[in-house]
């Protein structure tokens, strides 16, 4: 039987993959994709918590759950924010490539001098 923990586990593993991508890769496009991977992991965790509320953890009852706000709204808002982030991020990448002809962030050290 699949429970909350399975989703949390998968979400944690996907988040770790995203962090590894940000740490290891130097291509700014792949770093953007890794950030997307992390946001997706967070979305899975939120949707799972929304579906399997922790009744025992607080004073939440089944009636509260039926009348409470829908946690999926937050997933929806995160999707909106990450779409905006990709749009601006890709614009920055295009501008970067136009000026420096590279997407390797090791070679973009203008601010360090």
């Amino acid at each position: 039987m699949i429970g909350l923990n399975h989703y949390l586990l998968l979400s944690g593993v996907l988040f770790c993959l995203g962090v590894l991508g940000v740490i290891l890769r130097r291509n700014v496009l792949i770093i953007l994709m890794s950030v997307e991977l992390m946001l997706n992991a967070a979305n899975i965790a939120i949707a799972a918590f929304s579906r399997y509320p922790l009744f025992n953890a607080g004073t939440l009852t089944q009636e509260d759950y039926m009348t409470a706000g829908n946690g999926l709204v937050f997933v929806f808002l995160i999707l909106t924010v990450s779409a905006a982030e990709v749009g601006v991020g890709l614009a920055v990448v295009i501008n970067l490539y136009r000026q420096r002809s590279t997407v390797n962030i090791e070679e973009v050290n203008l601010l360090q001098g």
Binding site: G3, L4, N5, R51, L54, F55, Q62
Partner: peptide
């Protein structure tokens, strides 16, 4: 996630939803 009983793999039961 595997060892803590309070968030054990069979808990919580899937609540009834509309």
């Amino acid at each position: 996630l595997f060892r803590d009983a309070s968030v054990g793999f069979t808990y919580p039961p899937k609540p009834a939803i509309s």
